[in-house]
C-alpha cells in the first residue's frame, strides 16, 4: 500500500516538473523549451557585477554577496552549524550516559 502511494506521488511530481520544463511559458518563464544555459533575466547579476565593488569596497564579489547583500543567509548557516554541534554533543553524551572530562 505504501509502495503504491509512493509511486503515485512520484509519478505526479515527475509529470508536473516535466510539464514545467517543456512548457515554461505557462509558468512565467519566457522562451520555448529548456534554456538552463541561457537565463533570460540577468538584472540581478548585472547589478552585483557593476555595483558591488563601489558599494561594499570588496574586491571579491562573492564574499560581498554572502556577507553583505545576503547576510541573513549566512546567519542561518552559522546557526545551523551551531545547532549541529549542539545535537552531536547532546546525542553522544546521552549515549555515553555520564560526563568525565574537564
Amino acid at each position: 500500500m505504501r509502495n503504491i502511494a509512493m509511486i503515485a506521488v512520484f509519478a505526479i511530481l515527475l509529470s508536473f516538473f516535466m510539464y514545467i520544463a517543456l512548457n515554461p511559458a505557462d509558468f512565467g518563464y519566457s522562451g520555448e523549451g529548456l534554456n538552463f544555459g541561457h537565463p533570460r533575466f540577468t538584472d540581478m547579476d548585472d547589478y552585483f557585477i557593476h555595483n558591488a565593488q563601489n558599494q561594499t569596497a570588496s574586491n571579491n564579489v562573492v564574499t560581498s554577496i554572502v556577507f553583505d547583500y545576503r547576510g541573513f543567509d549566512t546567519l542561518g548557516e552559522a546557526t545551523v552549524l551551531f545547532t549541529a554541534v549542539l545535537g552531536v554533543g547532546l546525542g553522544l553524551r546521552m549515549l555515553r550516559g555520564d560526563e568525565d572530562d574537564e
Binding site: 561594499t56 569596497a57 570588496s58 574586491n59 571579491n60 560581498s64 556577507f67 553583505d68 547576510g71 549566512t74
Partner: peptide, 10 residues
C-alpha cells in the same frame, strides 16, 4: 585594508 565589515565577519 578594504571591504568594511566583511573581514570582521569573516
Amino acid at each position: 585594508n578594504t571591504a568594511g565589515t566583511l573581514p570582521i565577519m569573516n
